[in-house]
Amino acid sequence: MRSLLILGGARSGKSRYGQARIESLAGPLTYIATAQAFDAEMADRIARHQADRGPRWRTVEAPLDLPGAIAAVQDGAVLVDCLTLWVSNLLLADRDGDAAGEALCAALVRCRVPVALIANEVGLGIVPDNALARRFRDAAGWLNQRLATVADEVVFVAAGLPLVLKPA
């Protein structure tokens, strides 16, 4: 595995699938987290995710500079969880999402270690009723499409079952 994009809905099993794929590889493991604990529920969620990972894992927090965090990893393998929160962070920080998406694609292509990226597929529901939610849905969808073109493998996970969309 060189680069893997894992898509799915909330609680689809995509993070568990990505973690298992990365843990099957030899060497040190880096978890790049994009989440920020703005409330107690999110802090608990982050703590549970950390407890699920063993001592092989090193955590790097990258709420905004995800391309830089990926570029900094020189050995082992990387799991990025999740791109959807990263898109939210970029929107709320008023960052240029197109430029950030291009930088992320470039970092993925240049990366010398295996990388799995987790993202929600948010475009399967109704059209949101407000402008910010529509911008978010569109930005997440465009990023997923861009990454799918450069990733070696793309998998959609539903009910814990992987469906390969683009073989390695």
Rank of each mutant, 00 (worst) to 15 (best):
M1R: 11
M1T: 10
R2P: 12
R11F: 01
S12G: 03
G13R: 00
Y17P: 04
I22S: 05
E23C: 04
P28G: 13
P28S: 11
P28C: 06
T30R: 02
A33M: 10
T34M: 10
T34P: 07
T34V: 02
A35P: 02
A35C: 14
Q36M: 12
A40T: 05
I46C: 14
A47R: 14
R48Q: 10
H49C: 03
Q50T: 15
Q50S: 14
A51K: 14
R53P: 05
G54V: 01
R56H: 15
R56K: 11
R58V: 04
V60C: 14
E61V: 02
P63M: 12
D65Q: 08
L66H: 06
P67Y: 03
I70M: 07
A72L: 07
A72P: 09
A72V: 00
V73A: 02
A77N: 08
L79G: 11
V80L: 08
V80E: 04
L85M: 08
W86C: 05
W86R: 00
W86F: 09
V87D: 13
L91P: 07
R95T: 08
G97M: 15
G97A: 13
G97S: 12
G97R: 14
D98A: 05
A100W: 10
G101A: 08
E102P: 11
A103R: 07
A103F: 09
C105M: 08
C105A: 15
A106F: 02
L108M: 08
L108N: 07
V109Q: 14
R110D: 15
R112N: 15
R112Y: 09
V115M: 10
A116W: 02
L117H: 02
A119S: 09
A119M: 02
V122L: 14
V122C: 08
V122Y: 06
G125V: 00
D129T: 06
A131R: 13
A133F: 08
R134I: 06
R135V: 04
D138N: 01
G141Q: 05
G141K: 03
L143D: 11
L143C: 07
L143W: 09
N144F: 01
R146N: 06
R146D: 11
L147D: 13
A148R: 11
A151S: 06
D152I: 04
V154T: 02
F156V: 00
G160S: 05
G160W: 02
L161G: 15
P162E: 07
P162L: 02
L163N: 14
K166A: 07
K166T: 00
A168D: 13
A168M: 05
